[in-house]
């Protein structure tokens, strides 16, 4: 442990070329995430939030600026250098799962742990814990195509956490989930966060964002707000039930 921040981004810029026209998606973002911190990124669609986390995970190449992960400069890495760094340190949950189609759910989840150097027994135990927490124990032997979208998304989260990565990056991890399944995901995120997991995720789901230590809001590729959530002022005799008011 070096005490270096989990993420440090300096003046990060991403400009896409669309038919010869430059389209700026991220316009100079500075960001620092401490080890063990849980940061939620919010903003309207097109505000650059997905592009930002993709760059932080090396899945999209930055146009300019610097990215430091765990004290190591990462933006100058080659594709294979990024792949190695991700395998060692980063778990990523995509909006569209990217599960390996011809492997069982269990193998999908165990694979990153095995690649990361875990023993088969450790990998199996970790997989059993994660699938159990997400209510997917009975689906372990199934193929991804046999699962609903919501189930696949939870498998993608389990896979990202299999290797106990230093950093969990996620893009809308509850985007395809109904309320009940979202609850399982929230519980797991809260659980791993309490155990020290650093989490940076993009979400429009207020339930997810409200669990974060800090919320960063983007608009047009820039940070417009960044801060911890205030504690609500409670009326002296009140309960949180006061926020729920019935008519009648």
């Amino acid at each position: 442990m070096t005490g270096a921040p989990a993420i440090k981004a300096i003046n990060l810029v991403k400009i896409y070329q669309s038919g010869g026209v430059p389209v700026p998606a991220v316009r100079g973002i500075d960001m620092r995430v401490e080890s063990g911190e849980f940061v939620a990124i919010m903003g309207p669609s097109g505000s650059g939030k997905s592009t930002l986390v993709h760059m932080l995970g090396g899945l999209d190449v930055r146009t300019s600026g610097e990215i430091w992960l765990d004290g190591t400069r990462a933006d100058t890495l080659s594709e294979s250098g990024w792949a190695l760094l991700r395998r060692q340190k980063v778990g990523f949950v995509f909006q569209f799962f990217n599960l390996v189609a011809n492997m069982t759910i269990a193998d999908n989840v165990e694979l990153p742990a095995l690649l990361g150097g875990a023993s088969p027994r450790q990998a199996r135990e970790r997989r059993e814990y994660l699938l159990g927490e997400l209510g997917l124990t009975e689906r372990a032997a199934a193929a991804p195509a046999q699962l609903s979208g919501g189930e696949q998304q939870r498998v993608a989260l389990a896979r990202a956490l299999a290797n106990q990565p230093r950093l969990l990056l996620a893009d809308e991890p509850t985007g395809n989930l109904d309320s009940r399944n979202t609850k399982d995901v929230l519980r797991l995120l809260s659980d791993v966060h309490k155990k020290g997991q650093t989490i940076v995720l993009v979400t429009h789901d207020a339930r997810v964002a409200s669990m974060a230590d800090r919320v960063v809001s983007l608009l047009d590729g820039e940070v417009v707000d960044d801060g911890a959530l205030p504690r609500t002022r409670r009326r002296p005799m009140g309960t949180v039930g006061d926020v729920v008011e019935l008519r009648g």
């Binding site: 207020a206 409200s210 919320v215 417009v224 959530l229 926020v243 729920v244």
Partner: peptide, 22 residues
């Protein structure tokens, strides 16, 4: 407006956190 919107967003999110805890 930016200040108003940001403050309101934080307020809604902290209400959401209270609801989660409830």
């Amino acid at each position: 407006r930016m200040t108003l919107v940001n403050r309101q967003r934080r307020h809604y999110l902290s209400l959401m956190r209270d609801l989660n805890e409830l």
